[in-house]
Design a protein around this nucleic acid. Structure first.
Length: 426
RNA sequence: GGAGGGAUGCGAGAGCGGCCGAAUCGGACGGUCUCGAAAACCGUUGUGCCCCAUGGGCACCGUGGGUUCAAAUCCCACUCCCUCCGCCA
């Protein structure tokens, strides 16, 4: 949620900045009106309550002084005042609900550094690393699903028998490759990020406050008999951890990571680039998150980007860094770099990490704050997240890059100790 | 799953329905003293919201309801924690 003060104090500039994300000015005006109505309702109830409070104190005094008749008279007056207060309070509740509803629909402000644009088309390729277009031509490279099915390390048919579309079963070397990747990812980042094992199911309020559960976001799976949700990403658990707490400035930046299974309903994505390991309902990921001070968050974004890139670099996979334009940013983010790995079997760039600066947007809703060392004042932290290693697509890229003419798969050197072989043969 | 006990400020821990945003101790911070430190003594020490804003008001004692002129204190529901029993990786 954005700072509500912006609506009252800096409306025009806020509207201009949000327009870059395609936010309708009408929504902001409604929110501003709702904020004013809410404030008026607060003033009215506070005043009514003040009268009631001082009246009650007076009754207490009279009772103590033994003047029961006066106390009784005053009590009767206050009973009536109590009725008026109740009416004001229900009005206040209505005002707050309508304000909450509107403010929740306003996305985070895009960073001024973010390029203009309305869609994916306008995203800017910042850098391309390790990619040589000529290197893949004429080699007859096949998509990973063909290579993997032929080798018997992936079984889409039987996965469907178990669970339906957009699930995978991995066997033998394919399964070991997945496990090796996860361990590799955790080891690669363990010096800078605290390794954490988190529950894979979280309460409604936790997922709500991370911004991963809204009226428009039906991505997460919900358990039928308990008020719990399956993680769509470990970010939800890692960001849920400090919710409602006040951290010491000295503890920032606070960097942590978690491996988890991730579940996503992917509603509406059926049939779109879903073959093989491109898009699954269930996948494995090492997620990196960081909490930091507002003045360091841009630097922190760059260092998080560097850490996520390191994964692809060490694996020797060609990739590009794409900066999202204002219109393609997600609801909560103010600046995002996507890392896309090149998959030569399909000739596609696959998104394997979204390195996001959320500024204080997520911290405000989650109540994640820190105390300044000098002044002792309390402020919201900035939060960031990115995938340190997202298995399905990195797995796919490794299969496509490593495929040999005889159908086996040669692994990147860095993975050999983790998988226990240089060559996957089945 | 069954039976009990509990949830208060940074921590521990008090709190007859009114004088309780909350005793006391500890911690932290500032000061006095000291060459410096310790000790001692003095002081400060929650968060949010609102306003006619060097001041004032409102809310918050696990969460949500209720009773009452008035709730940390009474009632109801829920959540979590602890102990014991059962079950279990």
């Amino acid at each position: 949620m954005i700072d509500p003060r912006l609506l009252a104090e800096d409306f025009e500039q806020t509207a201009r900045r949000l327009a870059r994300k395609g936010v309708d000015r009408q929504l902001l005006e409604s929110a501003r009106e709702a904020a004013a109505a809410r404030r008026a309702a607060i003033v009215a109830t506070d005043e009514a309550r003040r009268e009631l409070n001082s009246g009650s104190a007076e009754v207490g005094r009279l009772v103590r002084e033994g003047r029961a008749d006066l106390a009784e008279a005053r009590r009767a007056e206050l009973a009536a005042a109590g009725g008026r207060l109740a009416a004001l309070e229900s009005e206040r509740r209505r005002a707050e609900e309508s304000f909450d509803d509107l403010i929740a629909r306003i996305p985070n402000l895009p960073d001024d550094l973010v390029p203009d644009g309305s869609s994916e088309e306008d995203n800017r390729v910042v850098r391309v690393e390790g990619y040589d277009a000529g290197a893949f031509e004429g080699r007859g490279l096949r998509p990973h699903w063909e290579v993997a099915e032929a080798l018997g390390i992936m079984d889409t048919e039987r996965a469907a028998k178990l669970s339906g579309a957009m699930f995978e079963v991995l066997r033998g070397g394919g399964a070991r490759l997945l496990r090796g990747l996860v361990n590799f990812g955790l080891d690669l980042h363990r010096d800078r990020y605290e390794e954490t094992v988190v529950p894979h199911m979280v309460r409604t309020e936790v997922i709500e406050r991370t911004g991963h559960l809204t009226k428009f976001d039906t991505q997460a799976y919900r358990l039928r008999d308990d008020e719990l949700w399956l993680l769509p990403t470990a970010e939800v658990a890692l960001m849920g951890l400090p919710q409602g707490e006040i951290l010491a400035e000295g503890d920032l930046p606070k960097r942590s990571m978690a491996y988890s299974v991730c579940w996503r309903r992917e509603a509406g994505a059926a049939g779109r680039e879903t073959r093989g390991m491109q898009r699954l309902h269930e996948f494995h990921k090492v997620e990196l998150v960081s909490l930091c001070t507002p003045e360091t968050s841009q630097d922190e974004l760059q260092s998080l980007l560097a850490d996520c890139e390191a994964t692809l670099r060490v694996l020797g996979l060609p990739y590009r860094v794409v900066e999202l334009c204002a219109g393609d940013l997600t609801f909560s983010s103010s600046r995002v770099y996507d890392l896309e790995v090149y998959a030569p079997g399909t000739g596609r760039w696959l998104e394997v990490s979204s390195v996001s600066l959320i500024t204080d947007f997520q911290a405000r809703r989650g109540g994640i704050r820190f105390r300044r060392a000098g002044s002792g004042t309390v402020e919201l932290v900035h939060s960031l997240n990115g995938s340190g290693l997202a298995t399905p697509r990195v797995w796919a890229a490794i299969v496509e890059h490593g495929q040999q003419p005889d159908g086996t798969i040669r692994l990147p050197e860095a993975l050999v100790p983790y998988v226990g072989t240089e060559l996957i043969t089945g």
